[in-house]
């Protein structure tokens, strides 16, 4: 599982970097065609928006790999360490449910419902764009499962509670 995760991390990282780079170029091209060529490209706005959705969804899956999404952790900090493996497993379980029900199931239904609907100005269908949801959902589900198993084994739990922050509370 660790090996799979490393490979996925690597691929996802470069996918995000590439998406971001293309996004910057597309919007630059939009400014250039409008301001310099005086002949605004009509496809750039739509293309940039979909690139951005893909970047956000895949980037979000990448952040799940690192458990980097912001959480409110002052309650758990007050719990005893021995409970933390179960609360962490629970957290990952909820992420898994969200990934399965919303990103994968809802995403696939979205792909199905919009598969024949054209994106105006681009040679793709809305359904093809919706594919980002189930794909990032599968990745997110994998990471959630990975961290769930790790947590139950008592490994990789969130950092020991910072003394300074407990005092602050």
């Amino acid at each position: 599982m660790n090996a799979i995760k490393s490979v996925l991390d690597f691929l996802l990282r470069w996918l995000c970097i590439a998406l971001f780079a293309v996004l910057v170029l597309v919007v630059c091209w939009q400014v250039f065609t409008r301001q310099v060529l005086q002949d605004p490209a009509t496809w750039t706005t739509t293309a940039a928006q979909y690139l951005f959705v893909w970047l956000a969804l895949f980037g979000s899956a990448y952040v799940f790999a690192d458990r980097g999404h912001i959480a409110v952790d002052f309650m758990v900090r007050l719990l005893k360490i021995s409970h933390k493996r179960y609360t962490e497993a629970f957290v990952q379980f909820i992420i898994l449910l969200f990934a399965v029900f919303v990103l994968i199931w809802g995403g696939l239904r979205g792909v199905d419902l919009t598969w024949t609907q054209q994106v105006s100005g681009l040679p793709v269908s809305v359904g093809a764009m919706y594919l980002a949801l189930p794909i990032s959902g599968v990745l997110t589900a994998f990471y959630a499962l990975f961290h769930l198993v790790e947590a139950l084994r008592g490994r990789g739990l969130p950092d020991e509670f910072d003394e300074e922050i407990r005092e602050a509370i």
Partner: peptide, 18 residues
């Protein structure tokens, strides 16, 4: 409940809304 159990804010909101 989900926030207090340290579920990321986005998932707490998204899952509850779903």
């Amino acid at each position: 409940v989900l926030l207090l159990l340290r579920v990321p804010i986005a998932i707490a909101v998204g899952f509850s809304a779903f």
